[in-house]
């Protein structure tokens, strides 16, 4: 039986993601894990997270998970979600600048405060709700229609330095990167576990992915 470890470091609700993974593929052994052993022995790893980035990084250090995550991200299919995507960048401007894990060169920045739509209505922050995702070719988008909507809730977004690592974008109102990928790592800003059919399909694709393109 293949296994997927969902990293538990005290940042937010892991039940949704665990339930969605289990639903996406009942034969997978879904483990909620905070210890290095379980994480490093799992066939694939999911790194979720909600909340503030400083607390996230601090919790990873405190639970001695930084090296574990780097190691997992080095050699097995790895899926970052929401804050679990942002944490992979070099740093974030949230909480007066926070150093992150630097697995992807680039920064995490806040949406501009004075955004308006084409009718002149002020756009709300956080960017919350279902938005269209424009994909670049990658096996994790298999069987997901181009421009499918996924559920987002965030105020910061990643800006990878290497444009080739941007594997999907969305608009609010300008285009921003909402998924990054390189080798065996794939990370998304939206919540696949809350994105109904498209989200479950992405999770199914991840659970069947060998980590290559």
């Amino acid at each position: 039986m293949s296994s997927a470890a969902v990293i538990d470091y005290g940042m937010g609700n892991l039940h949704s993601i665990a339930k969605a993974l289990q639903h996406a593929q009942p034969s997978t052994d879904v483990l909620i894990a905070s210890d290095a052993d379980t994480i490093l022995h799992a066939d694939r790893v999911v790194f979720p997270g909600v909340g503030a980035i400083r607390d996230c990084i601090a919790a990873l250090h405190e639970k001695k998970l930084v090296e574990v995550i780097k190691q997992a991200a080095n050699d097995k299919p790895f899926l970052g979600i929401c804050l679990g995507m942002q944490a992979l960048l070099t740093d974030s401007e949230e909480n007066n600048h926070t150093d992150c894990l630097n697995l992807f060169a680039g920064h995490v920045v806040h949406f501009d405060k004075n955004l308006h739509d084409e009718t002149g209505t002020a756009l709300k922050i956080p960017h919350m709700g279902w938005n269209k995702v424009t994909q670049q070719s990658h096996p994790l988008w298999n069987n997901i229609a181009q421009d499918s909507r996924f559920y987002f809730v965030h105020s910061y977004y990643a800006v990878p330095e290497n444009a080739q690592e941007c594997i999907a974008s969305s608009e609010y109102p300008d285009a921003f990167t909402c998924a990054i990928a390189r080798d065996n790592i794939f990370a998304v800003q939206f919540h696949p576990e809350k994105s109904q059919h498209a989200g479950l399909q992405l999770l199914t694709n991840f659970l069947n992915w060998d980590g290559t393109n």
Partner: peptide
């Protein structure tokens, strides 16, 4: 603008 208005 691509963000959908939600029905709850």
């Amino acid at each position: 603008m691509a963000l959908a208005k939600r029905i709850i």
